[in-house]
Computed example of a mutant assay.
Amino acid sequence: MDKRRRYTTLLAALIALGLGVLAAKAAFAGWLEHGPAIFLSLAESGMSWCF
């Protein structure tokens, strides 16, 4: 019984790790696609506080 519980925990941890890696890859791909627009919008909103 203890062995089955250990494998179930390992499987759940691997699934969680895989989902985390997929989320990180999606976020990185989104940053590569929209990075310049994000940077410019942040720079423009920062500049609006100066005037």
Rank of each mutant, 00 (worst) to 15 (best):
K3D: 12
F51K: 13
P36C: 00
R5N: 10
D2K: 08
C50Y: 09
A24H: 02
A43D: 11
L40I: 10
T9C: 13
L14E: 02
P36E: 09
L11H: 08
W31E: 01
F51L: 11
C50R: 13
Y7M: 11
I38M: 12
H34C: 02
L42N: 05
A29L: 07
L19T: 01
L40K: 15
D2L: 09
K25T: 08
L42S: 06
G30Q: 06
L10C: 02
L14R: 02
G20F: 07
K3M: 12
L42F: 11
K25D: 07
G18C: 08
L10V: 02
L17E: 06
F51M: 06
H34V: 01
A29C: 03
I15E: 02
A16K: 05
T9E: 15
L40C: 04
M1A: 15
G46M: 07
S48K: 09
F28M: 07
G18R: 03
P36T: 03
R4L: 13
S45I: 03
A13W: 08
A24M: 05
A13M: 13
S41N: 14
A37E: 10
A12K: 07
L11A: 15
K3R: 13
S45C: 00
G20H: 00
V21C: 04
Y7A: 10
K25L: 14
A23K: 03
E44R: 09
L14H: 01
